[in-house]
Design a binder for these strands. Sequence first.
DNA 1: TCATATTGTATTATATACTTTACATTTGTG
DNA 2: CACAAATGTAAAGTATATAATACAATATGA
Lengths: 66, 66
Amino acid sequence: MKNNIKVERAIKGFTQEDLAKKVSVSRQTINAMEANKYVPSTVLALKIAREFGKPVEEIFLLENSD
Amino acid sequence: MKNNIKVERAIKGFTQEDLAKKVSVSRQTINAMEANKYVPSTVLALKIAREFGKPVEEIFLLENSD
DNA sequence: TCATATTGTATTATATACTTTACATTTGTG
DNA sequence: CACAAATGTAAAGTATATAATACAATATGA
């Protein structure tokens, strides 16, 4: 799975820590997601999508390998 | 987090096992999700939403406690 | 009613999401 | 350049998603 968190975060002008606080996780969690180190839970995906004002499907994208 | 998997599954006429195979997880995973025993990964949420032809946000709903 | 499909539930085990702490590297700004 | 902010990264620990197996309960259909 891919994600556009870094891009969306740049659009909003948030730092990793800003976003982390908004969605109540650690900054490392945001950083690791951007680095595709792991797949977030659905709760976290919903919160992030909500922060960016976009549907989950526009931020998190399935790949063939999924 | 709540989800409407059971309802959507009934609309489509899928058994738990049908859906499990379509999204490549065990039947127990579907059963446990319907029983709110745990929150799925975003990959699984995307696959389930895709099977039901609806956005993730219509099937998985954040609650105040999230 | 009998047989079968479907669902609920429990247990054990494994993989991985996420936290905390800490430090190094990069980037932006005076 | 110097300083601070932002980002990258790593290790150790905890919580939880998911699998596999098994069996009980419930529905469904002949």
